[in-house]
Design a protein around this nucleic acid. Structure first.
Length: 270
DNA sequence: TGACAGGTACATG
DNA sequence: CATGTACCTGTC
């Protein structure tokens, strides 16, 4: 266990913000995460700035520091004078949210599954994928877990098989997208080098990826902070609280974080 | 029972 | 281009 201290960092809020589907709560202050081929246990007592990572110092520095976006100063955003009213409340409420930097391939598949779907079912679908097609591994405590399946592993799955695993109408989207990516059209490693607009354009070529899913992928995998995914919740917020229009231009460079504050606040207070 | 859940593809005008 | 609609499935 290594312990680190941060400001603007809350495991509970990150967990509840719903950006990661393989982040689970074990009890009030303990969480588990399966990501980047690893199993990570985390602990943070309520209202504590200290967080424990059950991993080596090397893994912390090479993987988790970037994954949890720990180098970024989230305080700066709160000091924007344009942050007033509902947004100000949302920022104060979600003070500990970080934008995770998750695996691109995993986010493409996960957010295709996420459409017209609720979080428990999204999670269950993804776990089904992992247990059926992921790599079986063991933690140092002997606990079994499954990594997120590779493109090659998923290329064997037919539409009928996806349907039998309860993916519903998303099944053909998955089959096509997996095929496109395996053929390198678009090329996933190239997408990582593109700017926001180009990356989004590229992602929109995939089947089952529309405006909202593309923005989620841009934000949660590529860290394009100008991506502002508009889903049903955000649409409601904009209609209710910003009928004259939301001042997007005031938050250039961190619109994605603003989106998460708004989403989380609305989600938790609905 | 039917609406709804972090939408998208496809068909029309 | 903009609007309308079908679509799997589980839960309340």
């Amino acid at each position: 266990m290594i312990k680190k201290t941060f400001s603007n960092f809350s495991l509970a809020q990150i967990y509840e913000s719903g950006q990661c589907f393989r982040f689970n709560r074990l009890d009030e202050y303990r969480f588990e995460l399966i990501a980047m081929g690893k199993y990570l246990k985390l602990e943070q007592y309520p209202n504590s700035t200290e967080c424990s990572f059950d991993c080596s110092e090397t893994d912390f520095l090479q993987i988790w520091k970037e994954y949890f976006d720990l180098e970024r100063n989230y305080e700066l955003f709160a000091n924007n004078p344009a942050a007033t009213g509902y947004l100000k409340q949302a920022m104060n409420f979600g003070w500990g949210i970080r934008i995770l930097k998750q695996d691109l391939w995993e986010m493409i598949i996960s957010f295709i599954i996420s459409q017209q779907n609720n979080i428990p079912r999204i999670k269950s679908c993804i776990e089904t994928l992992c247990t059926n097609y992921g790599e079986k591994k063991q933690t140092k405590d002997g606990k079994t877990y499954f990594t997120f399946p590779s493109p090659k592993a998923l290329s064997q799955v037919t539409e009928e098989q996806f349907r039998s695993l309860h993916f519903g109408y998303r099944s053909p989207y998955l089959v096509k997208t997996i095929q496109y990516i395996l053929q390198g059209e678009p090329d996933v490693s190239t997408i990582k080098t593109l700017n926001y607009e180009e990356a989004k354009k590229s992602l929109l070529k995939l089947s089952g990826v529309g405006d909202k899913v593309a923005d989620c992928i841009c934000l949660f995998a590529l860290h394009h902070f100008d991506a502002f995914p508009i889903d049903t919740h955000i649409r409601q917020i904009l209609e209710q609280h910003y009928p004259a229009g939301f001042p997007f231009e005031q938050f250039s460079g961190y619109l994605g974080i603003i989106q998460q504050y708004l989403f989380y606040y609305h989600w938790k207070t609905k």
